[in-house]
């Protein structure tokens, strides 16, 4: 491993540790045990979400061979919310809440995997050009979101705020039941991605080159897409869509280590994503006094980063 990369990784680890401690201890008041437990759960959730988004974005960009696509830009998280809303619609509000949340969660993940494969595998096989792929993905996202709000209104026209809740990122009302399951899934996903790191380096060269170098491209890409779908489902189920976090994390991480080698890139991006989430949450909770707006700010900053990346890429 290059010296620069190890320094960056050590630095990032320190940053994550430090911010984690700060998150747990800043402004402690009241019932210590209760507050610490609550914060501990939240911190775990932030870490799980950060890792899931970071790893899934790297994988997705490797498969699609570009730096601009992320699963959420392609509408994957919107698809998850749509699936969830549809489930509520089909089962009815009562039927839905009487089910074991872990069971429905597993069902939703499975559904997202199937849909993601059905949507993106043909696009990847057809080797669509990048701009087209992006545009289709963005419009798909709009379609999913509109369908979601349409179905939300069909469920209960007087009170569709419940379903709308899912479309804003929020780290305050977590589903603790799902946290353990999500953590296990994310860990498994990260391990699989890590073990594939050398294959990923080859796959990022494109289908032709990868096949030429002896990779079973189709099955590898199918596997990666399933992995991406699972990770996106985990993060979306926990906190709702966070549109541009993955993009910023990859853009920043890659600039820090200056390499696209997955052995270094995967941990770096995961750490950067966690650091952004924890630091942002601290900032919002203690300084700006409104933690729920984090998602909106990430969207704003991320959108500008995205435009800057795009325009810089054009000029090159």
């Amino acid at each position: 491993m290059a010296k620069r990369a190890s320094i960056v990784l050590i630095g990032l680890c320190a940053l994550v540790l430090g911010s984690g401690v700060a998150f747990m201890t800043l402004g402690l008041r009241g019932n210590l045990a209760f507050v610490l437990e609550l914060r501990g759960i939240r911190l775990c959730a932030l870490i799980v979400v950060g890792v899931a988004i970071g790893v899934s974005t790297v994988l997705f960009q490797t498969v699609t061979r570009n730096r601009i696509l992320t699963p959420s830009i392609m509408g994957l998280d919107a698809l998850f919310v749509l699936g969830q809303t549809t489930l509520v619609f089909v089962l009815g509000g009562l039927g839905f809440s009487s089910l074991d949340p872990r069971l429905t969660f597993a069902g939703e993940i499975g559904l997202l995997m199937v849909l993601a494969l059905a949507l993106f595998l043909p696009m990847l096989r057809a080797q669509m050009d990048m701009g087209m792929l992006l545009l289709v993905g963005v419009v798909l996202g709009v379609l999913f979101r509109s369908l979601t709000s349409l179905i939300a209104r069909l469920i209960d026209p007087n009170d569709f705020a419940v379903a709308q809740q899912a479309s804003f990122a929020s780290f305050n009302d977590l589903e603790p039941n799902l946290l353990a399951l999500s953590a296990v899934l994310t860990m498994l996903g990260a391990i699989v991605a890590w073990r594939m790191r050398h294959e990923l380096d080859v796959i990022s060269l494109g289908a032709d080159a990868a096949i030429g170098l002896g990779i079973a491209w189709r099955s590898a890409v199918t596997g990666i897409l399933i992995l991406v779908a699972a990770l996106v489902a985990v993060s979306t189920a926990l906190v709702g869509p966070v549109a541009f976090l993955g993009l910023i994390a990859v853009a920043l991480g890659e600039r820090m280590i200056d390499t696209r080698r997955h052995g270094v890139l995967l941990p770096t991006v995961a750490l950067v994503a966690v650091a952004i989430l924890v630091c942002g949450q601290i900032l919002f909770q203690h300084m700006l006094g409104s933690a729920s707006a984090l998602g909106v700010v990430v969207e704003f900053v991320g959108g500008i980063v995205f435009l800057a990346l795009l325009l810089a890429g054009v000029r090159r």
């Binding site: 701009g131 545009l135 963005v138 709009v142 995205f306 435009l307 795009l310």
Partner: peptide, 11 residues
């Protein structure tokens, strides 16, 4: 690259 324009617009 005509697809970049609508994309930039959407973002």
């Amino acid at each position: 690259q005509p697809y970049l324009v609508p994309l930039v617009g959407l973002i």
